[in-house]
């Protein structure tokens, strides 16, 4: 309804027109809600929103799946109930109030059955136009596979390091033996050289004695 056409309408028509406008807006709002609900259901990343008092007010399907709690069970629950590191989580949210966001914070989500899932938490602050804090949006990435891979890798590295250390020890042992043998050979060579020198001197002496004896005999 524009101002021009509104000017030509009688009060009853204006009321009727406004009612229709409200109805249309309500329908659009309803459609928007369905759209958001469908979109949120499709997103495979667990997402939830919190009140300023850290209470869960909404969660998508992925969050319900990873936590094993239905929406009715999680809504109204303080968020720290679902996490192992309660103090760390509080600290993260405190930081979000100052910095507006937090990225890739590692925490452990405890599901309804007690299963512990390491997750990477990202959070952002919600404020209204006047700057009042309305709560937080939290998103979680399941990093259990990454963690498992990382711990396997660490284990493999540790095993390889141990193997290498053993090999180094063996090499050191061999090296010691080789060096020992080399030194022994050097000593032996020196000894041989000394003996050879002694032998030569002895031979020289013998030649001199023989020569002297020969001279005496003549």
């Amino acid at each position: 309804m524009n101002i021009e056409s509104a000017g030509k309408m009688n009060p009853e028509e204006i009321i009727k027109q406004k009612d229709e406008d409200i109805k249309r807006l309500n329908e659009s709002l309803g459609d928007l809600e369905f759209y958001l609900r469908d979109l949120s259901a499709l997103i495979p990343i667990p997402i939830c929103s919190l009140s300023p008092f850290d209470i869960i007010v909404d969660a998508n399907n992925a969050f319900q799946k990873i936590s094993e709690y239905s929406l009715a069970e999680t809504t109204g629950t303080p968020i720290d109930v679902l996490f192992l590191e309660k103090k760390e989580l509080k600290d993260i949210l405190k930081r979000v109030v100052i910095e507006n966001t937090a990225r890739d914070q590692e925490v452990t989500l405890i599901s309804k059955s007690g299963r512990k899932t390491p997750v990477s938490l990202s959070a952002s602050l919600r404020r209204d136009q006047e700057g009042n804090i309305l709560g937080y949006f939290l998103a979680f990435l399941d990093i259990s596979e990454r963690k498992e891979f990382s711990s396997k890798l660490e284990l493999q590295v540790a095993e390889r390091t141990k193997e290498l250390q053993e090999k180094i020890k063996e090499l050191e042992k061999i090296n010691k033996l080789t060096v020992g043998r080399e030194l022994k050979m050097v000593d032996l060579k020196k000894e041989i050289k000394g003996l050879r020198r002694k032998l030569e001197m002895q031979e020289k002496k013998d030649v001199a004695i023989n020569q002297a004896a020969k001279n005496i005999a003549e």
């Binding site: 309803g30 809600e33 009140s51 300023p52 007010v57 909404d58 929406l71 009715a72 809504t75 109204g76 209204d128 009042n132 804090i133 309305l134 709560g135």
Partner: peptide
Amino acid sequence: NAPKYSLIVKMVMKYFFSLER
């Protein structure tokens, strides 16, 4: 349980930042 699912509650959640408000 009703407020947990309510679209209207989500719409007016902006008033829920303090008890006074």
